[in-house]
Amino acid sequence: MNKASKRSLRELVRLLPNSTYIFVVLFIAFVVFIPNFGSATNISSLIGQAAILMILSSAMSVAIITGGIDLSVGGIVSLVGVVMAQLVGHGMNDVMSILLGLAFGCLFGLVNGIVVVKLKVAPFIATFGMQGVAYGLANTLSDSRALYMPDEGVPVIKALQTNLLEWMFPSGNILTISVQVLITIVSLTLLILFFKKTVFGTYIYALGGNREAAKLSNIRTDKWNIMVYVITGLLASVAALLMLLRINSAQPTSGDGLEFQAVVAAVLGGNYLAGGKGSIPGAILGALVVYTVRNGLSLAGVNANMIMVVLGIVLVLGMVMNEVAVRGLSFGDRRKK
């Protein structure tokens, strides 16, 4: 291998999010060892399963890059789902219900942003509190009951639940791309484009890296910081829509615990909780890692409790691997005495 190509290879490796390694290694191991894991049918369902977490973890990574965090995303998933279902239940047109639901999520995010920026409450605490508010509202609005989609009068919701494309392989395996997956891909692409092609991305990193410097260079830090929480609110609402489509109903508890999983997926994807570093594609891969482990082990018939144990261990090993990939084996050297 000549020098130039070696360098460009190194460059490429550097550009990849850390979680790429874990994902690739796990994926290959599972394809080899677990029957049916690599089948088209399973890959289709794996992507469908991971979709919600992919959206939430990329939303989380936007907040994390600014040095913040949004623990209310799980609550927003429950709340916005309930709002959409209630609007449909009261006879509103389904497109309007979805749009209003998304708007409501943005509004909730705006409140998060205002509490963080204007009231100067630390993001962890502000969004932790707002999580409770979202949970309470979701339960109150639904009377703590599951809300079901009517069978008729919701053509768009029915359409969103269908498959866009089905490809039957000679083996009997079916590769399906559902509308839900399409929504996921479109949302994530838009987010990444918004991040890369507008000033937003640059400002976000500036906010997380050195806020004072950002302020001095005339970035309206407050405005952009609030914007971050509006965006996480919007993305969480998209996740709420996906959840609604997937479980064909809205449940006031459907988002419970998703906020922690989203943080874990984002961190696994190389986002630093201290802010300033990290990437959205990394967070997406982080979410895929979590679901690859779950899906693979479950497919192999591992006991649900054993999966919990293994998933925990894989998370730790994944983080170790991130460290190794970035810094080499230097745990000892960095210890100061």
Partner: peptide
């Protein structure tokens, strides 16, 4: 990690 997965499977 691959080995971990196998531990899971053999279990």
């Amino acid at each position: 990690m691959g080995a971990m997965a196998l531990v899971g499977c053999s279990n």
